[in-house]
Simulated assay, not measured.
Amino acid sequence: MASITVVGSVNRDVVLQVRGLPRPGETVHAVGSREGLGGKGANQAVAAARLGGGTHAVRLVAKVGGDAQDILASLEKDGVDTGWVATADRTRTGMALITVDEPGENTIVLDGGANQELTVADLPLELGTSGDVLMAQGEIPPEVTGAAVARAAARGATVILNPAPAYAFGDDVLKRVDVLVPNLGELCALLGVPVPATRGGVEELLAARTLPVGALVVTLGADGAIVLDSEGMLHVPAPRVTAVDTVGAGDTFCGALADSLARGRPLRIAAERAVLAAALSVTGVGAQSAMPTAEEVDQFAQQQENTR
């Protein structure tokens, strides 16, 4: 049975709810706060595990501080195998300070902590084989991400790279990536161009610029996603929902994409399901706490079909 291995970060999240995101030099008062568990690696692993429902193994490769026993217990409760999570006893687990405004938009400041101590030596030799999925991001040292991509690709695994935060990975890494999943801002940072104002502008950008990856899936928030693959370009619209909290929506998308690819679904079908999962996640509060199960996504998809 196919497995999913996620190489990435683990954080404690401190979320401040505000009426409006602060501008440079401005102080705003929070109207609420909460603490939770996050990090792009942990989030994507939880999303994939919840959607998988035990149909395939989901393993996390990461590094945490000695203060992370509750985090590991939470991950395991969600079905994530933490056997490849290393501990840096003298460093605390990473932290993310997140502000979320009333429409649900957010800003994030990261303190990498133990994430920055993850090394190539911490990577297991077996990072998947044919039929398996390897998923990595940008919240860990780039040389570790690059090594994980190369190792998994050499063994025949499907490699998903979510370059968040944006990092200019070299062609030696990108050419081994089967599916690159940036958001629009990250895509433009990778290409060194301004962010287009319209979806038409995004499509023109994609038509004119190329990256040496197998396929590209650009997430557009409330506007869904655009898939660029060997068949051409496809816009996948998102259903209209009332957004409560967008924290973790991109990670839900990536986890759902990995789950579908591990099930053998074509990329375009996988992207459609990932858009649904991400849209459903923003209707709840928190990152991991709002990530849906496969049954919830199926019910949501049926509701959308019934309203057409």
Rank of each mutant, 00 (worst) to 15 (best):
I140Y: 02
L97Q: 14
G200L: 02
G284T: 03
G25M: 04
M95F: 12
L180A: 06
A73R: 15
R209Q: 13
Q302M: 03
D171Q: 08
L216C: 06
V6W: 11
A287E: 13
E143Y: 01
L190C: 10
G65C: 05
D178W: 07
V120M: 06
E305T: 01
R308P: 00
A42D: 08
A274D: 04
G146H: 05
G264K: 14
A249G: 00
R155V: 03
L123T: 02
D171V: 10
T55G: 11
D132G: 09
I4T: 08
D259M: 07
A96Y: 10
A42E: 06
S33K: 09
L51K: 06
A96G: 12
N306V: 00
P22C: 01
V100M: 08
A279M: 00
E76K: 09
P182Y: 04
G221C: 02
V195M: 13
W84D: 15
A88D: 15
V85H: 06
V177F: 09
E26Q: 12
T107P: 07
A222M: 01
L276N: 04
A114Y: 00
A197D: 15
L118C: 10
G38Y: 04
D245A: 03
L118G: 13
A290S: 15
D13F: 09
D251T: 09
L97R: 07
E272K: 12
A168I: 03
L118R: 14
G156C: 08
G131F: 12
D132V: 04
R59H: 09
R209Y: 06
A45D: 13
E143P: 01
Q304A: 00
A222P: 02
W84G: 02
L174V: 05
T219R: 02
V80F: 09
P103V: 12
V247A: 11
R273Y: 12
L72W: 12
D298P: 09
L280C: 04
L257I: 13
Q299H: 03
Q304L: 01
A166C: 09
G94F: 07
T87E: 11
G94H: 11
C188Y: 09
E139S: 06
